[in-house]
Amino acid sequence: MEDALYKLCRRLKLGTNIVDNAKAIKKENNIEFLLELFTMEIENRELKRKNVFIKQAKFDLIKTFEDYTFEDIKIPKSITPNELMDSSFVGKKENLILYGNVGSGKTHLAIAAGIAACNNGKKVRFYRTASLVNELVEAKKQGNIVKLLKSIEKCDLLICDEWGYVPVDTNGAKLLFGVIADCYERKSLIITTNLEFTKWNEVFYDEKLTAAIIDRIIHHSHLLDFTGRDSMRLKNSLIKLK
């Protein structure tokens, strides 16, 4: 009997776990039974979908908002912590610039916002900025740049971590500008950086290109200032030593 049910599930493109769920349901009538069974199947599909989105995002680490504190982060009035967690800024195609000292929790917040976006049905892609530039340059050399750009184009949120940590040559800067320009008013960006805007030219070595990149990024952006925060990594390591 169960084998026949499994075969029917596969033919109907239903998860075979629906059979196991059916065994656990205790309801007084068929309608209540079906309602519970279909609800469980939908919840299972949603969970699988979220996990696929998280895997496709290629986060370096998994970080969430659980136990995350916004203490000492200067958050503009234009956005609230709840809007970071419910991903409403992604729906509005708004950007986040997380600026502050090394180790102050910028990457944690960026990844947590990305995970939340995945859980809210958004497609996300996470990159260390230097790795993104390297991939763009290599794809250009190999003739695969269109394929890479199309994969980035599919996401709703692009996260560029450690922006400005490594200088970028002219070719890399132009390719990166192309990505940023394509994102403009089409998708959201999250950028983490410890460089103020006036020093970005030291990374891209081209004043006009730097100005164009800044112009695209800061429009529709919220600047979260972490400069008043101590290094979270140092703080946590000191706590462990006590």
Rank of each mutant, 00 (worst) to 15 (best):
L61P: 11
V90G: 08
I217M: 02
D60H: 13
S78I: 02
T170F: 04
I62A: 03
M232N: 06
N119E: 13
H220Q: 14
N30S: 15
D169E: 13
K92W: 07
A212G: 05
K235P: 00
N21G: 00
Y68P: 12
L84F: 14
L5W: 10
L5K: 08
I239H: 11
K55S: 14
D161N: 05
G100R: 04
F33N: 14
D60W: 12
R128W: 04
V52W: 13
P81F: 07
R11N: 12
E66F: 05
N44H: 12
G143V: 09
K123H: 07
I239R: 14
N44W: 11
I145E: 12
K7D: 06
M40E: 10
K74V: 04
K122A: 06
L224Y: 11
S151G: 04
W163P: 13
S78K: 05
S237K: 09
A117L: 00
L35C: 15
V102M: 10
D67V: 01
K123Q: 09
C9V: 01
A212F: 04
V124A: 12
V166A: 01
S131F: 10
D60V: 04
G121K: 05
K93W: 01
N101Y: 02
I25G: 08
K26F: 07
E196I: 08
E207D: 03
I115M: 13
L195M: 15
S231E: 08
L158H: 02
E138N: 08
L176H: 11
N171K: 13
A112G: 08
G114S: 03
K13C: 00
D161Y: 05
L8Q: 10
K199I: 02
M85Q: 01
I25H: 12
G105Y: 03
L35W: 15
E28W: 11
L241Q: 01
Y6C: 09
N236A: 10
L109W: 01
S131E: 11
L96I: 02
F38N: 09
